[in-house]
Design a protein around this nucleic acid. Structure first.
Length: 617
RNA sequence: GCCGGUGUAGCUCAGCUGGUAGAGCAUUUGAUUCGUAAUCAAAAGGUCGACGGUUCGAGUCCGUCCACCGGCUCCA
């Protein structure tokens, strides 16, 4: 079943992965790489992409193959074809791949003179490859890999033979542009996964199933949290009572934490005059994402895509002293951005959303401390939601930028130092900064180890200049403040989507829309059950009474499916002793206990923002 | 926006080559009063995504649009 037969599949020579068959010269360092080694996985993927192309070329004569790399979770290969592939085609292709793998064809590296390679691919009608050689290959020799009758332009390395590719699955087919260019050919991209062992493949397919089960669009409907409907419009979210409850709790926590950390809150309108967006520059560089202006009273108004201009205008509303800085202003500001129809995706990509925005106005000298504080603050809040593993990126000056390179350096150094002094590991993303300044991005990892962009911290010299912001410094001179933009959760909609998937719909008690359900076993117990429910409500616990004329089993089942953390079951025995029987979702029966004991436990879980836990007697 | 796919009851899905719509779950009502994941029965529920066309007749064929899904590109 597995490849654990002790045979190496690659070599590492002087640190570089190479084919087993490669001629070795003067190796200072040399080791064999076995299938189980993580380095081998990308090669498995890449070789499997070749196998895919091999099968497609055999089955569909006339198809041109483009590029087929290994990617994060598997591999793909792009094909230029008259007719798009159908799901049945995929099955057929997979069968052919298995057949070719079974033949255990040797995969051979060959170096051809440039001219020969060009002729070879021209003869086969593979003009995309000819294009690639012209564009990408420098020098007079071209490396190709050959397996059976199939030859592909490739740098390698590859597995020694196709026989190792046993555990793969083709997942989907989608369109992609040739070389990512919208103006170029539309290609058919086939995605697949491959692993050295059956076990790993099964694990991965299990992961995909799990991810599908957790899809926030499905859970949002099943748990009645939110909807997005045609009648309202694409990308516009309706928060149903249960989703709204969760949002309310998130917002409450968010506000409390901000007030505790020296922020003040702002509220600003959803539209503003067109001139504002000219001053801010958004009309110029952001117009693609802005909705068409509205005109009334001979004045143009614009639905806001950003909150920052409003905050700048508040800053400008009177003179500011250095003694006031830093000013930390936060707003849950709802913005509207036009997104191309094809990119909308549940709560993760919408057209109207509420940013948990904040702008910090400070002096140059304060940037470092403010950023350090922002990092601490962000990590602390993300941790509350169970996001402990993070990927942090520092994005530096892009090619197109505004402002003074010296300011850029100042800001970039401040960000870098803040990260280092905070002891946060990070990766530099060169040239990925916003045009007005460098930024720190924080991506959280959810329970399925998937990465989601949430927080962003951006230093901005540009906006304060455009709005001519000033403050008076210690010696009475006028200076321009620096602005730091930051979103922590990103947007409430997006963050909600991430939370739903992270928790799989099983929210911690403080967020659970319904925290407890009371189930009377018999109509005789209905009055007592009502009392218990009221008692819980009075303690601030969101409890519901299930008084339907249904069996207990049914009510329990429904409560479990609704993912209600605490299920209280009351029959004659409980009523007699004035206690309750507790069931915790996913954990089952917890036995009888006094109501006060349970209330205490629930309130503690709410307070500590944890999941429902077994009660300690 | 682009490429491909999809759109039938609140949800999941049947509906053959055009002849006038069906199941399970959910809902409502009635019966049932039950000890840790589905009690029984009945009823109700759809201008078949929208608009236009072909046809004696369209859920089914054609066109346009809308939305959703998988991607590309872009992004909170």
């Amino acid at each position: 079943m597995s490849n654990k037969d002790g045979k190496p599949v690659l070599m590492r020579v002087n640190g570089e992965l190479t084919d087993l068959g490669a001629a070795t010269v003067e190796a200072d360092q040399f080791e064999f790489v076995f299938p189980e080694h993580p380095d081998a996985l990308n090669v498995f993927r890449h070789s499997c992409a070749h196998l895919l192309a091999h099968a497609v070329v055999e089955l569909f004569p006339g198809v041109q193959y483009g590029v087929g790399p290994a990617v994060e979770n598997g591999f793909y290969y792009d094909f230029l074809t008259e007719k798009p592939f159908t799901p049945e085609d995929l099955e057929k292709i997979a069968r052919r791949m298995a057949h070719l793998a079974k033949q255990n064809l040797p995969i051979k590296r060959e170096i051809l003179p440039r001219q020969d390679a060009l002729e070879l691919f021209s003869r086969k009608g593979q003009f995309l490859k000819v294009e690639l050689i012209h564009e990408k290959v420098e020098g007079e020799s071209v490396t190709v890999y050959r397996q059976g009758d199939f030859t592909d332009l490739c740098r390698g390395p590859h597995l020694p033979s196709t026989g190792l590719l046993k555990h793969f699955k083709l997942l989907s087919v989608a369109a992609a542009y040739w070389k990512g260019d919208e103006a170029s050919h539309s290609m058919q991209r086939i995605y697949g996964v491959v692993f050295p062992t059956r076990e790993q493949l099964d694990d991965h397919l299990g992961f995909l199933r799990e991810a599908k089960e957790r899809d926030h669009r499905k859970l949002g409907r099943d748990l009645d949290l939110f909807s997005i409907q045609n009648e309202i419009g694409a990308g516009l979210v309706l928060w149903h009572p249960r989703g709204a409850m969760i949002r309310y709790e998130v917002e409450k926590y968010w506000r409390e934490e901000h007030l505790r950390s020296g922020y003040e809150l702002l509220y600003t309108p959803h539209i503003a005059r067109g001139e504002l967006w000219e001053t801010s520059g958004h009309k110029g560089f952001y117009s693609e994402n802005m909705f068409t202006p509205i005109e009334f009273d001979h004045t143009e108004y614009q639905l806001k895509p950003m909150n920052c201009p409003f905050h700048l205008v508040v800053f400008k509303s009177r003179t500011r002293s250095w003694r006031e800085l830093p000013l930390r202003w936060a707003e849950l500001g709802t913005v509207y951005r036009y997104e191309r129809s094809g990119v909308l995706h549940g709560l993760l990509r919408v057209r109207g959303f509420t940013q948990d925005d904040a702008h910090i106005f400070c002096t140059r000298d304060q940037i470092l401390e403010e950023v350090k504080e922002l990092i601490r603050f962000s990590l602390n809040i993300l941790k509350t939601f169970g996001f402990v593993e993070l990927d942090v990126f520092l994005s530096t000056r892009p090619e197109n930028f505004v402002g003074d390179p010296e300011e850029w350096d100042l800001a970039t150094n401040a960000l870098e130092r803040a990260l280092k002094e905070s002891g946060v590991a990070f990766t530099v993303d060169p040239g990925e900064g916003v045009f007005y300044g460098p930024k720190i991005d924080i991506k959280v990892k959810d329970v399925l180890n998937r990465s989601w962009q949430c927080s962003t911290i951006q230093v901005d010299f540009n906006m304060p200049r455009r709005f001519d912001l000033r403050y008076t410094n210690e010696i009475g001179d006028i200076e321009r403040p620096i602005m730091i933009h930051r979103a922590l959760l990103g947007s409430l909609e997006r963050f909600f989507g991430i939370l739903i998937e992270h928790y799989g719909g099983y929210f911690p008690v403080w967020l659970a829309p319904v925290q407890a359900v009371v189930i009377p076993i018999n109509d005789r117990n209905a009055a007592y059950a009502g009392q218990v429910r009221n008692n819980l409500n009075q303690k601030g616990i969101r409890a519901r009474l299930d008084s339907r004329s249904e069996g207990m089993g049914r009510k329990i089942r429904d409560a479990e499916m609704e993912k209600i953390p605490y299920i209280l079951i009351l029959g004659d025995e409980e009523e007699k002793n004035q206690d309750i029987s507790l069931r915790i979702h996913r954990s089952g029966d917890q036995g009888k206990m006094a109501l006060e004991e349970l209330v205490h436990s629930i309130l503690k879980a709410i307070e500590e923002k944890t999941f429902a836990k077994k009660v300690q007697h």
